[in-house]
Write a protein that binds this DNA or RNA. Structure first.
Length: 233
DNA sequence: GCGACAG
DNA sequence: ATCTTGTCGC
């Protein structure tokens, strides 16, 4: 079974990007590899600067029992694609892929900042990234791109299915009492219950998973350090 | 045509 | 996402 797909061009038009998404869609596997054992879980994120065109990427790998970092890698790559809702992966994945190439410790699961199949064409950045990197992946977003969901309880752990075009594409998950939920959906080599389970396990204290929080801090540090270096000449 | 729209 | 200070609520 092919867990990883070949690489495609990144210098594409939005129309071509949509076509690539349609082709990749059928390759997404919506169940975890049999016998998946998760010892390390990672988060990926990208930070951008207002006037500039550099994307700062980072992946932080955590020990799943302690949620402590065991490895990390960063990158700084020119952004070639604008932000277009539904085409986020074409802007951010080249940056994440560079960090992934430099990463020396592979995680068993990778959590993306954005959606998986909760996407207009069922190919959000978590699906696309999981396919290209060949890793089980989860989408965990802070807001909805498509779909709706009913009300959920105030308690941590409360959930409500995200429905789009009569399909369950994800789950709104309350990771902390009385705080806005996060939106979880499978990426690649993943199913919804397992995705929800890992997001909750990675978010014992704050709204967002520790994976995302670590990656977010890392890429912001990279961006600021680069900005200061530029100021000094 | 109008509204919505991950990061 | 980024630009930005203080401020309200648990």
């Amino acid at each position: 079974m092919e867990l990883q797909v070949g690489w495609h061009r990144w210098d594409v038009t939005p129309k071509e990007a949509v076509e690539i998404q349609r082709e990749l869609r059928s390759r997404v596997v919506l169940h975890p590899p049999p016998g998946l054992r998760v010892e390390r879980i990672a988060g990926a994120d990208v930070s951008t600067e207002k006037g500039r065109d550099t994307g700062y990427g980072g992946i932080v790998v955590l020990d799943v029992a302690s949620l402590t970092p065991v490895a990390q890698a960063g990158s700084a790559v020119p952004l070639r694609f604008p932000y277009v809702p539904g085409l986020l992966s074409f802007r951010e994945l080249p940056v994440v892929a560079e960090a992934w190439a430099r990463l020396e410790v592979r995680p068993d699961v990778l959590i993306f900042d954005g959606h998986g199949i909760a996407h207009p064409r069922r190919l959000g950045i978590a699906c696309h990234g999981g396919l290209l990197l060949g890793v089980p992946s989860i989408g965990c977003a802070k807001s909805l791109l498509v779909g709706k969901h009913g009300r959920l309880g105030e308690a941590r752990g409360s959930t409500a299915p995200i429905i789009h075009k009569d399909e369950v594409v994800g789950m709104a998950v309350r990771t902390r009492k009385s705080v806005q939920p996060v939106y979880v959906s499978p990426g690649h080599l993943m199913d919804l219950p397992t995705a929800v389970e890992w997001v909750l396990r990675a978010s014992p204290k704050y709204r967002e998973p520790e994976t995302t929080r670590h990656a977010h801090r890392m890429v912001n540090a990279l961006r600021r350090a680069d900005g200061e270096a530029a100021e000094l000449g």
